[in-house]
Design a protein around this nucleic acid. Structure first.
Lengths: 193, 193
DNA sequence: AAATTCAGTTGATGTAGGTCAACTTTATTT
DNA sequence: AAATAAAGTTGACCTACATCAACTGAATTT
């Protein structure tokens, strides 16, 4: 499967596409390579793109007033990533999006995405469904954070996303789950026994 | 302004509508009255509707394994409410949606909404924008929960939603913010001084 | 208007998870 | 391969918020 075919396959999980639609999609996305530790979104700059990960891993994080990093999202193959608040409203970002590995992504810029959506009902539908799914996903995360203990959240995560667990630095996972690296370290050693 | 005009005005914040579109919208929504303490969504039943609040107040909550209620969302005039995870995927709900006051809502059922969206690009756009906004909203909540203390979250909430603060029972607010009623009570008495 | 239920307060005490600092291990760079 | 930087571990101690229980006040219900 070529790089672009992966993207098409992803969209066709939502709705099937005509030959012409596929071509229009392909021409709207650019393939780029991102080195480990490179930033693709930074605070105060508008996130101009939405990224589809073909290979590699990313994380989105914010830095609190106290200077702590809090991971908001991970993305590996077949996931989207950006600072959506910035991208959707085309306002300055508040987050960092950084590559955790040498990666390859397909990027679309805001204007091209708007054109896709406004010119074609099917594309509009796909992006609507994507947005609905992320709403549902985020809501599930809010619920987990409100109702589960740190240990439960960790167990749930490793069960749901084993492929992410072993791939990202421990401190990023701890900060995603809402506690400290030290605590995760202790938790893991406790669970090992 | 009639009840239906409020709904139209709400949609026109996103995109302006033709006379015909307005009529189609109106005929897709039903006006219903909901008494205080009445449930409009309950766990294990599929949420068949999405609700637009014309008058009154609602809250969505889940009950954890330990039996504690956790408020997921509030809705007052001009807000939407449902168990979206249930509504969007038409799967059994995990949440309760209950009226906090005698209320009036406009409801649309899942099938009618699908028809609106599939038959008209503009409607699709509106629902896409609505979904994007809720994603952004939820993400902001996740960030607040990860980065701010209980006191900061409370202060932020009362500043952002003063109209909700004085209208809902204190324990629902505490459970929305992620702590106990007792703690909120102490917090308030501390802040009063 | 009395009775009952529901919501909010306050005190005493407990604990999940945090902080800080020193150390070890693993990656990355030269 | 050595030097350096980044990530993870462990111990001692701490604190924000929870729990439980008893009480007060406000709203509903009869």
């Amino acid at each position: 499967m070529t790089e672009y075919e992966k993207l098409i396959a992803h969209f066709e999980k939502y709705v099937s596409l005509s030959k012409d639609e596929k071509e229009r999609l392909i021409s709207s996305f650019n393939l780029i390579k991102v080195k480990k530790r490179q930033f693709i979104v930074q605070p105060n700059f508008v996130a101009k793109h939405r990224y589809f990960v073909l290979k590699g891993a990313f994380r989105t994080y914010v830095v609190s007033n106290e200077g702590e990093e809090h991971t908001i999202q991970f993305a590996i193959e077949d996931w989207w990533i950006s600072d959506y608040n910035s991208y959707i409203f085309q306002q300055p970002a508040t987050m960092f999006v950084v590559a955790l590995e040498n990666s390859t992504v397909l990027q679309i810029d805001y204007t091209s995405e708007q054109k896709l959506k406004s010119s074609n009902h099917t594309f509009e539908t796909i992006f609507r469904m994507m947005a609905e799914r992320s709403t549902a996903f985020m809501q599930r995360r809010i619920i987990t954070n409100l109702t589960k203990s740190a240990e439960e959240r960790y167990n749930e995560f490793i069960e749901k996303y084993p492929s992410i667990t072993n791939r990202v630095p421990q401190y990023t996972l701890a900060s995603y789950l809402g506690f400290t690296t030290e605590f995760l370290s202790r938790l893991r050693s406790r669970l090992r026994k």
